[in-house]
Write a protein that binds this DNA or RNA. Structure first.
Lengths: 161, 161
DNA sequence: GATTGACCTGAACAATGGTTTAGGTTGCAT
DNA sequence: ATGCAACCTAAACCATTGTTCAGGTCAATC
């Protein structure tokens, strides 16, 4: 049907292909789809078929994960794109700038904590009421009962580089 | 029995008192005990009675939490103390120095990530194979399938300042 | 002695980010 | 046409850090 050169370009990807190319487990792709982070068409036999754009989307997800953005927020950000399309360079620019700010703030909080900790080491002040380390709230203290966010990237335990 | 001045000093604390003084919920104290982070005696009626040392122990736990040390590691560290006693100033010095190093490393990883992200913003390189952001492993990449660690301190939702 | 608040236990639930398992279907190759 | 790998779903499970609930006990006060 299509010319030979276009054949590979237009070809829809199976979930296994996306897993291999993105380095994300098939189960994770299913999970992302349930959470509305990615989308797929279905083949006649109900199997997922992905547009190549999904690779970029997954790449964005992976970077966001490393930054520590919870999936729910990534989902919101991706859903906020006009026409729910995959992020292009401009979209990525906006997203990454926002997330870099969050990352910056996180680094600042941790740095402040580290400095307080350094002050505190060896002083035994953990017993004192006035210890800054024991009394957050200066500029620290971050709420969010449901919104924990992890830190690590957590490579695939299975394999898939 | 004991002199009036010593009465308050020797008095064992109930779980409610520890909760109030430490700013940690009773349920959390139960949880910490199940995990071996704190210990208690029992009254004749099977109620927990805490030595005042537990307050210091809980303080250490709270600081470790803010740093992002998982409870299992805190438990190990506290268990590693000679005679399983509550940490004194010297113990705290050792612990906090170790944890400060971890915090430092974490800050370094995040800073590196932020710099990569800054480089990446607007360049659209998310599509390129060579993008450093998409290819961790330079000095990043942190394993550990079971050992996620959170970031935030998570103030008590109930109350208890 | 009765009431009330604090306490006890064990189990279920919550949130995040998935993996694993069980049982069944598709799709491609031979 | 048959076999095998890859796919499908739903539900259960893992880890972490607790909270909440149900059902019952303890302790102090009136």
């Amino acid at each position: 049907m299509s010319r030979v050169t276009a054949a590979n370009i237009d070809k829809a990807l199976t979930v296994g292909e996306v897993a291999e190319r993105s380095g994300v487990a098939v189960s994770a792709l299913h999970f992302y789809e349930r959470k509305g982070l990615i989308h797929s068409q279905r083949s006649a036999g109900n199997q997922r078929r992905y547009h190549r754009d999904v690779l970029r989307r997954v790449a964005v997800i992976k970077v966001a994960q490393r930054i520590g953005i919870p999936l729910a927020e990534v989902a919101r950000a991706l859903a906020g794109l006009p026409e729910a399309r995959s992020p292009n360079a401009r979209d990525w620019s906006r997203l990454s700038e926002r997330w870099r700010q969050e990352l910056d703030e996180r680094i600042q909080r941790l740095t402040q904590l580290r400095d307080q900790l350094s002050d505190c080491i060896g002083c035994g002040c953990l017993s004192m009421t006035a210890c800054r380390l024991r009394n957050p709230g200066d500029e620290l203290s971050e709420q969010g009962p449901g919104a924990r966010r992890w830190e690590g990237p957590r490579e695939q335990p299975g394999d898939a580089g």
